[in-house]
Amino acid sequence: MGYAQPGQMQWMPHQQPIPGCPPGLEYLTQIDQLLVHQHLELFEILTNYETNNRYQVKNSLGQQIYFAHEESNFCVRQCCGGKRGFMMHITDNSNQEVLRLNREFKCCGGCCWCANCDCVAADISVEAPAGNVIGYVRQSQSWWYPNYDILNVAKEKVLKIKGPFWFCQNVCCTDDIDFNVMSPDLSTEMGKLSKQWGGIIKEHYTNADNFAISFPMDLTVEMKACLLGAVFLVDFMYFEKPKSKNNR
């Protein structure tokens, strides 16, 4: 899988195996926040051809925990944009795959009004290790707000993510865009997923986004991993927009 180069970054100290915890997810037992930074892709900036996305996943101290890279077809990336299906490989500091995310392409997918239908709802399955599903992120029906359900392996609702009614980021609007992590009945805020302002140049000329996500320390590692998966689904659905060559 080897894209990561551990010698060029500071990694979070290795964690000892924990009984019952999927291998490689021990890191998640020690944290209540993740930072996800997308790589700048020079070829994409120069040509406007969509490349496979790559990300660094860090803790609040800036220590890298995981490296994530997309696997998808070249033609699908150019033709389907943020709706595309993909496989996201998430590896640790020894380049061992500890998480795998799968998103299926759905021709009519993404419409929040019709997200009660499986053929329309955008979703991601979360596997740890690869081939062993531990949960799901699924778009839920709403009239305007971006809504997602975080489901366990039995497809029972554990958390919800509720996005803002309207959002933008530009030279006049530089606030972070917050998606609230809620209890299943929406009565209690449990955390937050935020698309961070990356600066005028980065926001205008690239698709390289920064996210932060917070959650309870005692949340299960499976649900923390699903919330990480939600970051990628939100990124592709709302922020994977082609930058016009006319803006360069």
Rank of each mutant, 00 (worst) to 15 (best):
M12L: 12
A212C: 12
K160N: 13
Q196K: 15
G110H: 12
G81P: 07
S214N: 01
G20N: 12
C75S: 14
T220N: 13
Y55N: 03
T29C: 09
Q5C: 06
K160Q: 14
E222I: 00
T29R: 13
N210M: 10
F43L: 14
M12H: 04
I18G: 03
F165K: 14
S60P: 00
W166G: 05
A122R: 15
D32H: 15
V234K: 08
M88I: 04
S125H: 04
T51P: 01
G2M: 03
I150G: 11
R77L: 13
F165D: 06
A122M: 14
G135K: 06
L99T: 02
S194I: 06
C173G: 01
F67V: 00
Y27F: 08
P22K: 11
V181K: 07
A230R: 05
S60N: 13
E127D: 08
K160T: 11
Y145S: 07
D123L: 08
C226Q: 06
W197P: 02
V133P: 00
G2N: 13
A68E: 01
P22E: 12
N53G: 08
M1V: 08
Y66I: 00
G109N: 05
A208E: 01
I177P: 01
H39L: 12
F105N: 01
K224W: 00
T91G: 01
G198K: 04
D176R: 10
